[in-house]
Amino acid sequence: MVERMVPNPRHERLRRLLLEAGERSHEVRQAYLRAFGAMGSGRVWTGPAADRWTDELADRHHRLGQLAQRVVDTVEEEMRRHPPLVTEAEASAIRREMAGRT
């Protein structure tokens, strides 16, 4: 008898995590835009110190975006390692493992 296939609890948890990571990634990418735009306008602060600060702000903005994308990429990679459907017995075992009851 073929066992019924059900959603993989681990895959489902990763899918929710991916949605959350995507939302947070978008927020992170917007984090410095307002300040960077203001500094780039030349109306907020000017001079050599302002230029260095703006360059540092741009660098941090770029690195933060890269790190946020790495989180999304890592979750996507982990999702590919777990099938979306498993047998009922496998799903039960996965739920026990995720709950720390192996």
Rank of each mutant, 00 (worst) to 15 (best):
A31R: 14
W53L: 14
V28N: 03
W45F: 15
D73N: 14
Q30P: 00
F36P: 03
T54D: 03
P84D: 08
R34D: 13
E12D: 15
V44M: 09
R63T: 03
R13L: 15
G40R: 08
L64H: 15
M79D: 00
D59M: 14
E88V: 07
V44F: 04
Q66G: 15
P48L: 13
A68L: 10
D51P: 01
E3I: 01
A91P: 01
Q69F: 01
V71I: 15
H26N: 04
R52G: 04
R60L: 15
P9F: 08
V2R: 08
L67F: 06
F36A: 13
I94C: 06
M1Q: 01
V28R: 11
R29F: 04
R10E: 14
R24T: 13
E90Q: 13
V44L: 13
V44P: 00
V86N: 01
E12W: 07
L64Q: 12
V86W: 00
E88H: 05
I94E: 09
D73K: 06
W45N: 07
H26Q: 05
P48Q: 14
G100N: 05
Q69N: 06
G37M: 10
T102D: 10
P48V: 12
R52T: 14
H11P: 07
R24C: 09
L64I: 02
H62R: 13
H82L: 03
W45V: 13
V72M: 07
A99N: 10
P7Q: 02
E27F: 06
A50H: 08
H26P: 02
E76T: 13
E90C: 00
N8G: 03
R4H: 09
A93H: 05
R4A: 11
G65C: 11
R96M: 13
E90V: 00
R101P: 02
G40C: 01
G40K: 05
H61A: 07
E20F: 12
R10M: 14
L33T: 14
A21P: 10
R80H: 02
H82E: 14
D73H: 07
T74G: 06
